[in-house]
């Protein structure tokens, strides 16, 4: 169980992050969550560089990606992930406030695996985050870790 794959939550807003973690806590998956506060940090984590240079290698089980983030925005991160052969298998769920058609279209065009609009209502939000975490973190069988085999 030491090699349990983490969930990567990219969320620039600490309150949203806290609320998301509160939702995940109920299912005891909060401790498997790595929170990144901007797009650059997400890429650092995925490529094991900067602050994450010494982390255990391996891809996260899922990436929850906010669209609007400082430095590198969600769509840019998504583009990078989906155009990199080793990162491409990671499921990416867009978790955002935007319901704009162009955002939806662009996300799916870049290869997002799901698109979830954050509900304003906390109970709905909590349900959404819980269900997502349970589905992607527990129910869904992740792709075989190609980076582990190369190491």
């Amino acid at each position: 169980m030491t090699t349990v794959k983490p969930i990567l939550l990219a969320e620039d807003n600490p309150r949203d992050a806290e609320l998301a973690l509160a939702a995940m806590e109920e299912h005891h998956i909060a401790d498997k969550v790595v929170v990144c506060h901007d797009g650059a940090e997400v890429l650092d984590y995925l490529y094991c560089r900067g602050a994450f240079a010494s982390r255990e290698p391996g891809n996260p089980v899922v990436v929850f990606l906010d669209l609007k983030m400082p430095k590198v925005d969600g769509l840019e991160v998504l583009r990078t992930i989906k155009s990199d052969v080793t990162l491409k298998p990671i499921p990416v769920v867009m978790l955002t406030s935007s319901r704009e058609e162009c955002d939806l279209a662009q996300s799916y065009a870049l290869g997002a695996n799901a698109y979830v609009v954050k509900p304003v209502e906390f109970h709905q939000f909590i349900t959404a985050v819980k269900e997502l975490s349970v589905f992607w973190g527990i129910i869904n069988e992740p792709p075989p870790d190609s980076s582990a085999s190369t190491n």
Binding site: L19, S97, F122, I126
Partner: peptide, 21 residues
């Protein structure tokens, strides 16, 4: 309207969320 959809909803979510917490 884009920024309304994105930015105005976040604090509302927080109000409701923290009230629930």
């Amino acid at each position: 309207s884009y920024s309304v959809s994105h930015d105005l909803r976040a604090p509302l979510r927080h109000i409701d969320g923290y009230a629930a917490l």
